[in-house]
């Protein structure tokens, strides 16, 4: 595998590719603005400075920005055709801003505006409280894969940072998990910054499995400072630094049949799909499962564990 060449060791001279996934669910951002005062607009200002800081670290650092919206994931930067150069040509160069910062900032802002002006599809998606994290992650991984293939000498070290705001969507469990394992195989750390709301279990697992950082934002006004200290260090510097992060990880899964979050479930012995109740045939790999054995010993076992869990005051969850 040519892509897998030397992803583990990082040199001082290596360039860094940061793929930033911004969760742009407007409903939750409004909620966040009301409760903590951090609106999307404000957060974007912090994020742009953060992007500039990343580009400032090294001449050949690269960045890509993906918006994970309610129903669609979209590249904000880079995009194949640079937008609207004809409209305001006088703004192409600004002598007060480094040209690379300017190109990135202008495109991200412009594309973000376009994204919000286009609200036609907002109504069709079933789960409005969530965002297309799985789609955005896949796009990020594809993009990284392409860049790494083009880079023959293995000079570019990629990483992903997710600015997460919406809660987990159990609908996306399988695809998110697939993304996580692909990222793990490619050696790409996924960092997660949870800006608002409850911890997301899936993304916490993502950070844990891929060796990234998971951090919940505690002081919304200090968003930029949080980003700078925790998420700016490149993979070379991380070897030497102690960074803040979460130690406790919740490994609970969602079932494949009803997309419910479960602590205890049934696992297909062939393809390891997870179900919340026993099935005669696995819906994923079509294997006929013999339920008799499950009914005989399995249920007893499960019940036994449930009782045990209750006795322990349900301290932690695990799947059977």
């Amino acid at each position: 595998m040519s892509v897998l060449k030397d992803t583990a060791t990082v040199n001082e001279d290596d360039a860094n590719l940061l793929v930033l996934i911004i969760d742009t669910n407007p409903l939750i951002w409004t909620r966040s603005a009301k409760s903590t005062g951090l609106s999307l607009k404000e957060a974007l200002r912090h994020l742009l400075v953060f992007i500039n800081a990343h580009l400032a670290l090294k001449h050949d650092n690269e960045v890509a920005v993906i918006a994970s919206h309610v129903d669609v994931s979209k590249f904000l930067f880079p995009i194949p055709t640079p937008p609207r150069l004809s409209e305001d040509t006088d703004q192409v160069v600004d002598s007060n801003l480094y040209q690379r910062f300017k190109v990135v900032n202008d495109q991200v802002i412009g594309n973000m505006k376009d994204l919000f002006e286009d609200i036609t599809t907002l109504n069709s998606y079933p789960d409005k409280a969530s965002s297309m994290i799985a789609g955005a992650l896949s796009m990020a991984l594809c993009y990284i894969n392409r860049i790494m293939r083009a880079d023959e000498i293995g000079h570019i070290k990629p990483r992903i940072l997710i600015i997460s705001i919406s809660p987990d969507s159990p609908y996306q469990y399988i695809s998110i998990m697939n993304c996580i394992f692909s990222a793990q195989k490619l050696g790409i750390p996924i960092d997660v910054c949870k800006v608002h709301g409850e911890d997301t279990v899936f993304l916490k697992q993502a950070a844990h499995i891929t060796g990234g950082r998971y951090l919940k934002l505690q002081i919304p006004q200090g968003f930029l400072q949080f980003l700078m200290i925790t998420f700016l260090p490149d993979r070379f510097t991380r070897n030497y630094q102690c960074l803040p992060g979460e130690e406790k990880v919740d490994f609970s899964a969602s079932c494949f049949c009803h997309k419910k979050m479960i602590d205890i479930g049934y696992v297909c012995s062939v393809c390891l799909s997870i179900f919340c109740h026993p099935l005669e045939q696995c819906s994923t790999c079509r294997t006929n499962l013999i339920l008799a054995s499950v009914n005989e010993c399995g249920l007893k076992l499960v019940n036994g564990i449930k009782k045990l869990d209750k006795a322990k005051g349900r301290e932690s969850g695990g799947s059977t």
Binding site: V49, N52, A53, A56, V93, D94, S95, N96, L97, Y98, Q99, F101, K102, N105
Partner: peptide, 12 residues
């Protein structure tokens, strides 16, 4: 430099 503030014309 990072925020694009000021009027210094230092980038040409």
């Amino acid at each position: 430099c990072l925020t694009g503030g000021g009027d210094h014309q230092s980038f040409g």
